[in-house]
């Protein structure tokens, strides 16, 4: 019931949906409160987020810095455009890659405009994240980069997380 969908829409959009058992309020908070974000938005196994700035107000800054503990790093910056607790977030984000960036990738990456909605769905929440990239080449590069930086992680390890 919680499985994620990721679809390409039109030339410039990526739409991700995911269901959660928790309420929209809890899911919204987990996306906007630094102490909570630092616990889950980590990407691959072994990475942490030592810096997490998240000013959840229109115009507020977002800055996430990830580290793999052995020199590897990745930074995301962004700004909030609009927030409607606990149903909708609109923000812009971009990645700053360590040098050298992958072939032909602009650094930072072009702005990704993201609208995230949290809707009550039974006792849980349906999250719909709609990303808008400047053009299709940027979209392909972004999808590639997401993988490049190992958004893959070990499921075996996740299964072992204490309840």
């Amino acid at each position: 019931m919680t499985r994620l969908t990721l679809k390409i829409e039109g030339d410039t959009h990526v739409v991700v949906t995911r269901r959660f058992k928790a309420s929209p309020e809890a899911v919204y908070r987990a996306h906007t409160e630094p102490a909570l974000i630092q616990k889950w938005l980590l990407g691959p196994e072994g990475w942490t987020m030592p810096v997490c700035i998240n000013e959840a107000k229109p115009g507020g800054r977002i800055r996430y810095e990830w580290s793999d503990g052995s020199g590897g790093s990745l930074t995301l910056t962004g700004e909030y455009v609009a927030l409607e607790p606990f149903g909708r977030i609109v923000h812009v984000e971009r990645f700053h890659m360590p040098d050298p960036a992958p072939d032909n990738m602009p650094n930072p990456t072009p702005d990704n405009h993201i609208e995230t909605r949290f809707e009550a769905d039974g006792q849980g929440t349906l999250m719909t994240m709609r990303m808008t990239l400047p053009d299709s080449a940027t979209r392909e590069a972004m999808l590639a980069t997401g993988m490049e930086y190992g958004m893959e992680a070990s499921y075996a390890r996740l299964d072992e997380l204490p309840a």
């Binding site: 919680t2 499985r3 994620l4 969908t5 990721l6 991700v16 995911r18 959660f20 058992k21 928790a22 809890a26 899911v27 987990a30 909570l36 616990k39 889950w40 938005l41 980590l42 990407g43 691959p44 997401g146 993988m147 190992g150 958004m151 893959e152 992680a153 070990s154 499921y155 996740l158 997380l161 309840a163």
Partner: peptide, 15 residues
């Protein structure tokens, strides 16, 4: 998809 799912699996646990 699996990669994103890893983040959200962690979020499930947190929630």
């Amino acid at each position: 998809r699996r990669a994103l799912e890893a983040n959200y699996d962690r979020l499930d646990q947190l929630l």
